[in-house]
Nucleic acid binder design. Structure first.
Lengths: 210, 210, 210, 210
DNA sequence: CATGAATGAGAGTTCATTCAT
DNA sequence: AATGAATGAACTCTCATTCAT
């Protein structure tokens, strides 16, 4: 009666619900019951498909990180020079996070907590993204167009800025009633990514163009 | 449980334990039982002094933010020019966070989650710190030594970078067994703050010196 | 805890235990733990089936009131004249309360406390019983066989008397060691109901027979 | 510094607060903390003066029962004939309960629960009131003006009716929005007591007047 | 595959009571 | 006589997980 399609859809519904809920309330703040209700599946199915809550969480993180990684890899092919690669890295990351605001919350939560909910071999996802950037930066440094680069710090600068900006959107709106230019409530995705790119480039600018 | 009847010490022990535990495992990840045990205090005392878990959490956040705010205000008096003020802002923040690594975790968790565990009037603490920086930047912009400033983004850039770097120290050590220059495991506090300052200044550099 | 996976039986066991315990010690005097133990059910099941303690209490009250209401409605069909209806009302109520002594305690507790544990739409149960009597009395008044009727007071007179008599049976036995005719310890159900009926009828007697 | 006056006042404040709270929410529904707060005394004082919660409860019941008993004894002196005594018994009881609605709630709760919160020698208070009535009734029976008397049932009839009527005043108002003659919401104390007296007398009427 | 029933541990919170001052 | 600090047990309720069908 039920076929593979259904089972895949069920799994998908679970993951989608889990992403949203985990992002909003964190691993400990969400109950399996709630995920099941939101996904409209029987709770036991979650255990059937994912073994337990922690494994589901891992799957959620892995799914998000894999998706963004592949998107960046795909987009970056269009670039020729390190600076363009950097531009695309920032734009794609920003675009993805803007449209999947869960990602920002989850990344900050995971990184901030020392990834206590993740098993060691899960950092791969995070590291792969970092390596993408790291390679861009090192290539640029070799070519002389980037100067004085500490990859991990630049990495945190980029994703920290973007994640914090996106995940605090509601918060900032809550806290300032009147329009307040300082907190940039009306800034859109383009403004954010282009500003970050512009500033990072200026900050790293070497003697050669590229 | 000791029976000293020294309410100040008891309260202090509770707060100190709570800071550490909340930072490590988040609001939902810590039980009141555990806090009580760590503080060597009868659990009911936590409710006696703080009414409930959420209020204790608020107190923890408020204590940390107030402390760092006052430290920055104190140190910044030594500065004359906006650029020096920026330097001290970054150094003091970095120094404080380095020595109270709880702060970084808690800030990321709170900001990342949209401060769901905090009542509205608690953002004051966060906003006060932001305003400090914002004023420095705006003063510098008026004097022409900072250029093209979006305060909130610069703010997230600074605290995002520092907080992520500090709160992922263990994580980075866990993930790279061999010494890996890219992830800057051996970087100390000074290196971090001076690199961030150097880069931020370069990034904002206007036509006038100051 | 048995593991029968028979939800109806499990629910029933919970209700039966709850009726008895609530009647003896009141809503606040009984713990959910105790109800679970008496029902030989896992405590969580109570929350699974009834959501919380208050809802279980409501269910208990509703069950009892519905049962007695239906019993009275059933029995009263046999009567032709208002006086017979009144007789059956008193007899059936007395019989039911005598055999379910919980009812008396619970009714007195609920009415005495202003039904603080019940939501507004639960009075329906109480009101339905009152309306039964009220209709009998009004019909009798119209026919001229009852005289000077204030339904609510007559109602309290009947159920107050019967409930107090039944719920104080143990108390009266405890307090008078020697046989004491005044407190009617040896009175049985028949004596109680026939005495109450006889007296109420005399009290209401109008000029017409019926 | 503090003198006897103060200590008596403190005790009094505790009792007054306790009466009100126990009447509203029952023995188990009230915390010692709350009583202390309402009485504006330190919680430990309650233990100092009354030893524990149960003893305070007893004191509350005893105070109320003693007061009403003495009032009835006082008023009843004015009566000459059994019927007048009965009239005064009902009027005084009704008047007292009407002005101390706590009494009705507490009596129903205690009687309904089998006086589980009271030690055996506390029934004296209840029994003394019953004996007052019992003597009136027996005297009347001997004189031939009351007929077919079962004292305990008549007793429950009187106090049950009055207590239920008074303690359900709010409840009845809550449940019927429109003016509903049946539930006698606008009945005042006089109407209640005179109706009860009239009916009880009719119900007991013997061949002789008195 | 899917469901609802069941479990046991542990969560946050409140309580009556006592102690030290 | 009075206070605030402290205690330990109990309470209501939720959770992650498993089982039987």
């Amino acid at each position: 009666m039920t076929n593979e399609r259904d089972s895949i859809k069920t799994k998908q519904r679970i993951i989608v619900s889990a992403i949203e809920l985990f992002a909003k309330d964190g691993f400990d703040g969400v109950s399996v019951d709630l995920i099941a209700k939101k996904a409209d599946v029987n709770k036991a199915m979650i255990y059937y498909y994912f073994k337990n809550k922690a494994k589901l969480y891992e799957k959620v993180i892995k799914t998000l990180l894999d998706n963004i990684y592949e998107q960046i890899v795909l987009d970056i092919k269009k670039a020729k020079k390190p600076r363009d690669e950097l531009k695309i890295f920032i734009e794609t990351f920003c675009n993805f996070a803007w449209n999947n605001p869960y990602l920002s919350s989850l990344m900050l939560a995971e990184l901030g907590s020392g990834a206590k909910n993740l098993p060691s071999d899960m950092f791969v996802g995070l590291k792969k993204i970092f390596l993408l950037l790291s390679n861009i930066l090192k290539k640029g440094e070799e070519k002389g167009c980037f100067f004085d680069v500490k990859p991990i710090i630049i990495h945190f600068m980029i994703i920290g800025t973007i994640n914090l900006f996106i995940s605090t959107k509601d918060l900032r709106n809550r806290v300032v009633q009147k329009i307040d230019a300082d907190v940039c409530n009306e800034c859109d995705e383009k403004e954010l990514s282009s500003y970050v790119y512009k500033k990072i480039v200026k900050m790293l600018k070497g003697e050669q163009p590229c």
